[in-house]
Simulated scan of single mutants.
Amino acid sequence: MTPQPPENRDKDAGRWSDLSRPPLNAAALRRALVRPGALWTALDVVPATGSTNTDLAARAAEGAAEGAILVAEEQSSGRGRLDRVWSAPPRSGLFFSVYLTPRVPVEHWGWLPLLAGVATATALSQTAGIDTALKWPNDILVTAPEDSAAAGERKVGGILAERAGPGVVIGIGLNVSLTADELPVPTAGSLALAGARTTDRDPLLRAVLRSLERWYTDWQSADGDPAASRLQDTYAAGCATLGRSVRAELPGGTDLTGEAVAIDSDGRLVLATANGVQQPVGAGDIVHLRPATRQRPEGDDSPER
């Protein structure tokens, strides 16, 4: 065997420096997901980037085909709603974006982040063997065992959908193997801390993308109708927000408090207020959604994906 130059040995050592967090197998992922007739048309894994959403949106502007997937082993400036910033250790999670060009009425496009939530939550439940739930509008929750270092209901993932070119880029971030001392905020968790039966990111990513393909295909077949595609009912069934008293913090410092009673046909959260009014609130209308009984700590700006 020809000896490798020192710089190549260092590069390989860095790639495998944490054996508990091996790199993704890009070639195997492409073989499993990119095939004739499938939704997914390209899959790239990069060592690091600022934001997969930003990078894939740039590719969309240059003519990328629907079904392009961009995955990063490390994401240093991942963005959530309202440009909140989030980052995690290399190879500790799944950080990826997909590009979709829906052929349904544009008024139904607002369902895409909720569709991604349903697809992700169901895939994780089946593959990792953990209970998942959805916090409206864009968070993935798990309930960790009481003896866990991150017990109780915790956020393990988030979703961000952004218009790009003629379509939409959907970014998904999931905490997979983060330890308790690596969690970015007190309300965060990870699949490992929730007792997942696997933290192997390759099968987890394949499962999420296959689930997303199924849900997206069914939704398009129903012309984007959330009821006919079962999306509305499935989201509501898995939504932990429903039935709880919440406070929607609105731009300008105002807020709206009520019991979350439904997800309407536009994907908005319907709040039943104390004066008997049922008020729908869209994801773009709120700054934060919090439990009604919890006061926001001074300086709290918990990050989202």
Score class of each variant (00 low, 15 high):
residue 10 D to F: 09
residue 14 G to Q: 13
residue 17 S to E: 13
residue 21 R to C: 07
residue 23 P to N: 05
residue 25 N to F: 07
residue 26 A to Y: 07
residue 27 A to P: 11
residue 31 R to D: 15
residue 32 A to M: 09
residue 40 W to T: 07
residue 43 L to R: 01
residue 44 D to A: 11
residue 45 V to T: 01
residue 47 P to I: 01
residue 61 A to I: 01
residue 61 A to C: 04
residue 64 A to G: 03
residue 67 G to T: 12
residue 69 I to F: 09
residue 70 L to G: 02
residue 75 Q to P: 00
residue 78 G to D: 04
residue 80 G to P: 04
residue 84 R to L: 07
residue 91 R to T: 10
residue 91 R to S: 07
residue 100 L to N: 07
residue 103 R to H: 13
residue 104 V to D: 06
residue 104 V to N: 03
residue 111 W to M: 05
residue 115 L to Q: 06
residue 117 G to I: 06
residue 118 V to D: 07
residue 118 V to K: 00
residue 121 A to L: 10
residue 126 Q to I: 05
residue 129 G to C: 09
residue 130 I to D: 11
residue 132 T to P: 13
residue 133 A to I: 11
residue 135 K to D: 09
residue 139 D to R: 02
residue 144 A to M: 14
residue 145 P to H: 11
residue 149 A to L: 15
residue 154 R to T: 01
residue 158 G to H: 03
residue 164 A to I: 15
residue 168 V to D: 11
residue 168 V to T: 14
residue 171 G to E: 14
residue 173 G to N: 14
residue 174 L to C: 12
residue 176 V to H: 04
residue 178 L to D: 10
residue 180 A to C: 09
residue 182 E to V: 09
residue 186 P to C: 04
residue 186 P to A: 10
residue 187 T to V: 15
residue 187 T to F: 10
residue 193 L to H: 08
residue 195 G to H: 00
residue 198 T to Y: 02
residue 198 T to N: 03
residue 204 L to T: 05
residue 207 A to P: 12
residue 213 E to R: 04
residue 215 W to V: 05
residue 215 W to S: 07
residue 223 D to E: 15
residue 231 L to A: 03
residue 233 D to W: 08
residue 237 A to T: 05
residue 246 V to G: 02
residue 255 D to E: 15
residue 256 L to I: 14
residue 257 T to V: 15
residue 259 E to Q: 14
residue 262 A to R: 06
residue 264 D to E: 01
residue 265 S to W: 05
residue 266 D to H: 06
residue 270 V to E: 12
residue 275 N to T: 13
residue 277 V to W: 10
residue 282 G to Y: 03
residue 286 I to K: 00
residue 290 R to T: 15
residue 291 P to M: 12
residue 292 A to T: 10
residue 296 R to H: 04
residue 296 R to A: 10
residue 297 P to W: 13
residue 299 G to C: 12
residue 305 R to P: 05
residue 305 R to H: 07
